[in-house]
């Protein structure tokens, strides 16, 4: 226990100032009423869905929770079920083998719900494109509020995308 406490003290607080939202990522505007967004903004629950990514975006989604970006410090956390979620964070081109699972996850998420597509693949289909096996970008399958490009996007860009989706001022 002593060693753990000493290591915590040695490390100190490494969290950085969180980024601001970026309106350039917004696809749909004002889908939700301002007061709903205001209540989201206090404590947002996210369900991540890998719809067929290469797992690169997952690495950066993990990184948003590290002490440097400290996403939980903003009141935003990842939850284990779409039933508990306010937002879906979707990566990958949507593989046709995941199309049904993604639709069902969306349907299982209580309305009002937000969807943020992560990465070049989520935005456009990326390098995998559309084919017999890939339906392409996320918005081909479910409605997307905000799309964050990058291969993979950085943790800062991912957090900006999440914050943009719940930004109150834009909707009011």
């Amino acid at each position: 226990m002593y060693r753990i406490l000493r290591q915590i003290a040695r490390t100190g607080i490494v969290s950085e100032t969180p980024p601001r939202p970026d309106e350039a990522y917004r696809l749909l505007s004002a889908r939700l009423r301002a007061e709903v967004l205001r209540s989201f903004a206090g404590a947002l629950s996210i369900r991540h869905v890998d719809a067929g990514s290469c797992n690169g975006c997952e690495l950066e989604i993990h990184a948003t929770s590290n002490p440097v970006y400290n996403l939980e410090g903003l009141g935003i956390r990842f939850v284990a079920s779409p039933r508990h979620a306010d937002m879906l964070l979707v990566t990958g081109p949507v593989s046709r083998n995941m199309e049904t699972a993604l639709r069902r996850t969306y349907d299982a998420t209580p309305a009002p719900r937000l969807v943020v597509a992560i990465g070049d693949c989520g935005c456009t289909g990326g390098i995998f494109g559309e084919s017999y096996a890939s339906a392409g970008r996320v918005s081909k399958v479910i409605p997307v509020d905000v799309a964050v490009p990058g291969c993979p996007p950085t943790p800062v860009q991912i957090i900006q995308g999440i914050l943009t989706a719940i930004e109150v001022r834009a909707a009011s």
């Binding site: 067929g52 990514s53 081109p93 593989s95 083998n97 995998f128 084919s131 096996a133």
Partner: peptide, 11 residues
């Protein structure tokens, strides 16, 4: 498995 099959080899 196979859910993430996105046609890489054909690509």
């Amino acid at each position: 498995l196979g859910y993430a099959h996105k046609g890489i080899e054909k690509r």
